Simulated assay, not measured.
Amino acid sequence: MKKAFLPLWAAACVAAAPLTAQAQTRKPAAKPPVKTVAKPAPKPVVKPAAAAATPARPVAPAPAPTPTSASASAPAPAASAAVAAPAGAFGVGTNVVNLGIGLGNRYGYGTGFLGGSSSVSPALSVSYERGILPLGPGVLGVGAFVGYQGASYDLGSGDKWQYTDIIVTLRGAFHYPFLENLDAYGGVGVGLRHAGVSFEGSNVYDIGSTSGNEVAAGLFVGGRYFFTPGIGAFAELGYDQTYLKIGLSAKF
């Protein structure tokens, strides 16, 4: 019996040998790999030697800001010196109005005629002037003048002649800056004079009313002194309607 069992055991061992060898040679299952978080790559460091190899370009200074105040429109001192009027009470762009009273009269109103007597009222005048151009050390001004004067010639017994005298001229004057508040000037005026006469009284000397126009021209010199920046007084000698004018001046 033992001999019969041996072949069977041997056969079983032979059959089981491949399974045992296969079991011994089988490797255990591999574990899943552990994921690792990649670190960010470090930033490249600029070496001082490399930075020094290329010299830095100089940075241009920032432009000066443009002024926005009222002083931005003022011209530069060097440029303004060539065109600005000299300092004084009257300059380029200055406007002046004179209100005056004239004393004396240039024209005769029948004095000594027929033994009568004449009287002349003070002349009232208004003038305007504006500085327009630097001229040498001073300023050239132009403007206009209007004056009115009345007169009468009394013949006696209620007979009288009445005169009216109106003069309108254009003026040009040179102004010299003597002092800061003093405006000294001299010039010439050319225009028209309108003279009229009418009679009052009896018919003995009545010649009706008449009038006429003629060219009027004259020279004048004067001065204005300003007590404040805008108000002053003036005096003027001339040969236009009256020989002397005095009054007030307004500057703006």
Rank of each mutant, 00 (worst) to 15 (best):
F174N: 01
L182K: 00
F178W: 14
D183R: 06
Y148F: 12
N181D: 14
S152H: 12
H175Q: 03
G186K: 00
Y163F: 15
K160M: 12
Y148A: 09
L170E: 07
R171E: 04
K160L: 11
Q162K: 10
H175I: 07
I167L: 10
H175M: 02
R171F: 03
L155G: 03
D159P: 02
L155F: 11
E180T: 15
W161V: 13
A151P: 09
G156D: 06
L155K: 03
Y185H: 13
R171N: 11
A184Y: 10
D159S: 10
S152R: 09
I167Q: 04
D165Q: 10
L179S: 13
L155P: 00
A173N: 13
W161L: 13
H175G: 00
Q162W: 08
G150N: 07
A173G: 14
L182R: 00
G172R: 00
G156H: 08
Y163D: 00
Q162V: 10
D183T: 06
L170N: 08
D154N: 14
Q162S: 11
G156T: 08
L179H: 14
G186P: 01
A151F: 13
D159V: 06
A151W: 09
Q162P: 04
D154H: 05
D165I: 08
L170T: 11
W161S: 10
Y163N: 01
D165K: 04
W161R: 11
K160C: 07
G150F: 05
G156P: 02
S152T: 13
S152N: 12
L155I: 09
Y163I: 02
G158N: 05
N181C: 06
D154Q: 05
L170F: 14
D165P: 01
V168G: 15
T164C: 09
G172V: 06
I167M: 08
W161D: 09
A151S: 14
D165G: 04
E180H: 12
Y176I: 12
E180V: 11
P177Y: 07
I167R: 02
S157T: 09
L170A: 15
Q149A: 01
I167H: 00
Y148T: 07
A184F: 14
A173L: 14
Q162I: 09
A184C: 12
G150K: 08
A151D: 10
D165E: 07
